[in-house]
Simulated scan of single mutants.
Amino acid sequence: MRVGPGVTRVHAPLRPGAIILARHGEPALSRKCLITARQYGEWWGRYEVGGLRAGQIPPRELVAAAEGAGAIYASTRPRALETAAAVCNGREVMVDALFIEAPLPPPRLPDWIRLSPRWWGVVSRFCWHLSDRHHQEETRAAAAARAEQAAQVLIGRAEGGQDVLVLAHGYFNHMVGRRLQADGWHLVQNQGFRYWSQRRFEKR
């Protein structure tokens, strides 16, 4: 359609792309053991520097999300980097420590208490929420500020109209997702927080 003299052409506002927060694949380090709180601290240290269990195939849906994304971010942790390598098929990935997991410092409990790493994670996260002093670890308040910063980085990218994919960690992704929702983004697809899962947010 031709626009006559004196008529201003009105452009529709660009709709933001989606923000997809995905969790890494299953780590190689086994959770099938009973350990003390002190040993859990050592276990978590190994978990942070470990990669994925061999032989995993990423879900086709997550591979498709990577194919359709205009920007892909990954945490600096090996389990996130190996996830990116498995999902992104050689695509450029922006690796950023901004997306690393919120810490899980173990509580100071006697050695006669022995739990699996999974349950120590639950106990440690609960204690982390209750206290702002964590033996030189990042505090809950500091992690919340980091999550807000991460959310704003992703929003800035998505506002260009392309989808943004993040390959990172369960709990910190949850924190970022809450900040996105507080900024008016809607959770339109929710696969939970299991390994390889994704949660898709859109601005409506």
Rank of each mutant, 00 (worst) to 15 (best):
V3A: 10
G6D: 07
R9Q: 11
V10W: 07
A12G: 13
P13V: 13
L14E: 12
G17K: 03
G17E: 01
G17W: 02
G17Y: 02
I19A: 08
I20Q: 11
L21C: 13
A22N: 12
R23C: 10
R23A: 09
H24R: 12
H24C: 11
G25Q: 07
E26S: 12
L29A: 06
L29S: 05
S30V: 03
S30M: 04
R31P: 00
R31W: 02
R31G: 11
I35F: 02
A37Y: 01
A37K: 06
E42G: 10
W43E: 01
W43C: 02
W43D: 07
W44S: 12
G45W: 00
G45V: 01
R46Q: 07
R46M: 01
G51A: 12
L52A: 06
R53Y: 03
A54M: 06
A54T: 11
Q56N: 13
I57M: 09
R60P: 02
R60D: 03
E61C: 09
L62E: 12
L62D: 13
A65Q: 14
A66E: 02
E67N: 12
G68H: 03
A69V: 04
G70C: 14
A71Q: 14
S75H: 07
S75C: 10
P78I: 03
R79C: 04
R79L: 01
A80N: 04
A80M: 05
A80S: 15
L81F: 05
L81S: 06
A84K: 06
A84C: 08
A86I: 00
A86Y: 01
V87F: 03
N89Q: 15
G90I: 12
V93Y: 01
D96H: 06
D96M: 07
D96K: 03
D96N: 14
A97W: 06
A97M: 06
A97N: 11
I100F: 08
E101N: 02
A102D: 03
A102V: 14
L104T: 14
P105L: 00
P106W: 05
L109M: 15
D111M: 05
R114F: 01
R114T: 12
S116F: 01
W119C: 09
W120I: 11
V122N: 05
R125F: 02
F126A: 15
W128C: 00
W128Y: 04
H129V: 05
H129Y: 04
L130V: 10
R133G: 09
H135L: 14
Q136V: 12
R140P: 04
A143Q: 07
A144P: 00
A145V: 03
Q149A: 15
A150G: 09
A151G: 10
L154I: 00
G156N: 12
G156Y: 04
A158S: 13
E159Y: 06
Q162L: 05
V164G: 05
V164N: 02
L165V: 05
L165Y: 02
V166A: 13
V166W: 00
V166H: 11
H169D: 08
H169G: 08
Y171S: 08
F172M: 13
M175P: 02
L180Y: 00
L180N: 03
Q181A: 15
A182E: 15
H186D: 15
H186A: 14
L187P: 09
L187E: 07
Q189V: 14
N190G: 09
N190S: 11
Q191K: 12
G192T: 11
G192S: 12
F193H: 13
R194Q: 14
S197F: 00
